[in-house]
Design a binder for these strands. Sequence first.
DNA 1: TCAGTTTTAGAACATATGTTCTCAATAGAT
DNA 2: ATCTATTGAGAACATATGTTCTAAAACTGA
Lengths: 192, 192
Amino acid sequence: MPRKAQYNVDAVLNQAIDIFLEHGYHGTIMDEIIARAEFNRRGFYLEFGSKQHFLYLVLAHYQQNYLKKIMQHLETNQGLPSIAAFFEAYVKHVKGKGCLLINCIAELGFDDAKIREIGRHYLDRLQIDFIGCLEKAQNLEQLHPQTNIESTALQLTSYVQGFAVNAILAGDTDELQIATQALLGPLSLKPV
Amino acid sequence: MPRKAQYNVDAVLNQAIDIFLEHGYHGTIMDEIIARAEFNRRGFYLEFGSKQHFLYLVLAHYQQNYLKKIMQHLETNQGLPSIAAFFEAYVKHVKGKGCLLINCIAELGFDDAKIREIGRHYLDRLQIDFIGCLEKAQNLEQLHPQTNIESTALQLTSYVQGFAVNAILAGDTDELQIATQALLGPLSLKPV
DNA sequence: TCAGTTTTAGAACATATGTTCTCAATAGAT
DNA sequence: ATCTATTGAGAACATATGTTCTAAAACTGA
């Protein structure tokens, strides 16, 4: 009967993340996606339909397999250590590359409502998770009792975006790790 | 003798800022630049050489005429009010559009060393200006004396990048203004 | 081994896009 | 007014790029 397909959709999606990170959406050409993923054109269009639709799938894959896993640190209910663990994982992830979602917002956000919506969702979720963590931290007396939780969560969300941009500029240096300490240190009651 | 050119380089550069903000670099096509700026192809290439070189000129113009002017708030030597004035101007500027420089870093930073360098310069400068402002604020006793100036300046720089991304997502709402208050409020000794 | 179906590789296609070229229109010096 | 250098509008060009098509290769089940 039929022949079996050789390509691995997951591998293709993972490859594509790096390509889109390097060249942006419009800067990425199909030839590179197809060549670097050891794929073939026909298979690509049968599987993914179009470049734009493919981007959405890559983004979903990116969120599911990377961002979501990093955010899970915030759900371990440890208060500040959870936040520290989140940033450690995030910085490691974006180091030298940046964040695909943030890049897409910057490049396509104005024209593409779907990207905007995904971006809003992501930042809202981040904010909510930070609030949860900070409340826990306050209960555990890791935080100054009069800390304004909402505004601190907003701070942390800003840091995430700041890191996403800086990661592109900083390359493979340790700047971001150092920055993390400088930013999170002042939060805790005692020195970390 | 010769005929006089009709186009206005400054107007062309200003138009281009909006176009690049909307569609990104690769998403912007020459036809739109030329049409929207009431320009003509020949003049364009005589004046600017190429799309890439044009982008650099637009970015320089953008920094000189927008970012620089906003950053001048930080050089008025008023301490915290200078910082507040900076953010007010910045938020107003990026509202509903984002920041061209940040967008270029996200889209092109990986491939384009020149963009990276411009980006680094900009963020360094921002950081230094914030430090100056915070020191002044400390002298004027607007700040808790034990505030860590360096790490606070880093925070503020992160906020700037956070706003640049959020401005695209937030559209024309007042979210950013509210966020500014939430972020800057906790800095000052007395409620603003 | 053979048949049938699907995949693969890449040619082919249509359009888009950055850039150059042509030539008539035009402004200014004489 | 005339002449001439330069502009302006868009045709023209070469290449790039997203997508589809073709025909040979390959896998599976009988």
